[in-house]
Design a binder for these strands. Structure first.
Length: 294
DNA sequence: AAGAGATGCAACCGCTAATCG
DNA sequence: CCGATTAGCGGTTGCATCTCT
């Protein structure tokens, strides 16, 4: 919260500059939402549906800007939003997806049902990035830090980032061989060892490939990643290795979970992409748990 | 018990992309 | 085609709470 609870925009400017158009109106409330406001917004959206955020506050009788309403709904009030701690499985998934996608929080969140981009981003910044750093891993690149020096009580018990052995994206670097060229060859190149698959050597290629191809391919690829489908991953790797200048989508056997036309690589409860932004297509109305209030 | 520092997270900001007229 | 509007994204902020001394 960047503004005291209950504060309203006065319309004044700092340093003579105009304030942001969205919340610049006099009388627009900012800061934490009250339960009453939540109820008004939730009831309105349930009745009228999402969208038209600009006009929503006026119609709903809220002294908020549309942007704030949208954010509150998306991150907090949506029935599909899952509250509670990030599970180890989710954490593992976030790590994998971040390694592949970088700070594309919405895209990552789109693969983790019930979690919002804001939540994923917060969790990354407050937990995972610190864990990686404490392991001597650069959270941005997922590669070993150049001059990492573990502290004396630096997680000797191995309670660090929870990753299953076959998916250990970031094998703990041995500080004693920080400059060992052999280690550099294996680790600083950023190799991700999914079993016998070393995708990272073609990181650049497949990232471009994925970006240049349709979202179904990306979606299916992420599904296969999530579901540990080595066949699908190998198919994609091969396709990407062939890759540019004329990258054609890989062919998918009918039975493969990597077939974008069937989407059968999805586990139950996973939502598909609603758009290239990674928005969830389907809500989960059964999950009616609303979050706590500030 | 109290103060200081660290941490978690909701909310805001600024920007870009997409859509509309 | 173009400008205006809207939606969405990632980065950042700062208050509330927790933990430590």
């Amino acid at each position: 919260m960047r503004h005291p609870s209950g504060s309203t925009i006065s319309g004044s400017t700092s340093a003579g500059k105009t304030v942001t158009p969205c919340c610049s109106k006099v009388g627009i409330k900012r800061g934490p939402w009250t339960p009453e406001e939540d109820e008004i917004l939730a009831n309105y959206v349930k009745k009228e549906g999402e969208g038209r955020w600009r006009t929503l506050p006026k119609k709903a009788g809220l002294l908020r800007c549309g942007k704030s309403c949208r954010l509150r709904w998306m991150n907090y009030l949506r029935p599909s939003v899952k509250r509670g701690r990030i599970t180890p499985d989710e954490e593992d998934l976030i790590l994998r997806l971040h390694r592949l996608l970088g700070n594309r929080w919405a895209l990552i969140a789109g693969r983790i049902p019930g979690r919002t981009d804001n939540e994923i981003k917060n969790y990354w910044n407050t937990h995972l990035s610190k864990k990686l750093i404490s392991q001597g891993i650069d959270p941005r690149t997922h590669k070993p830090l150049q001059n990492w020096n573990p502290g004396p009580d630096d997680d000797p018990g191995g309670s660090m980032v929870s990753v299953t052995p076959s998916h250990d994206l970031n094998p703990k670097p041995n500080p004693g061989v920080a400059n060992d060229p052999r280690r550099d060859q294996a680790s600083t190149s950023g190799i991700v060892d999914y079993g016998d698959l070393c995708l990272e050597t073609q990181h650049e290629n497949w990232e471009k490939y994925l970006e240049n191809n349709n979202e179904d391919v990306l979606s299916s690829f992420l599904d296969s990643l999530m579901n540990d489908d080595p066949i699908a991953l190998r198919q994609l790797r091969n396709a990407v290795a062939i890759g540019p200048p004329s990258p054609l989508p890989p062919t998918f056997p009918a039975h493969s979970s990597f077939n974008p036309s069937t989407n059968n690589g999805m586990t139950s409860g996973q939502a598909g992409f609603g758009s290239s932004t990674g928005e969830l297509k389907s809500a989960h109305p059964s999950n009616a748990a609303y979050g706590r209030h500030a």
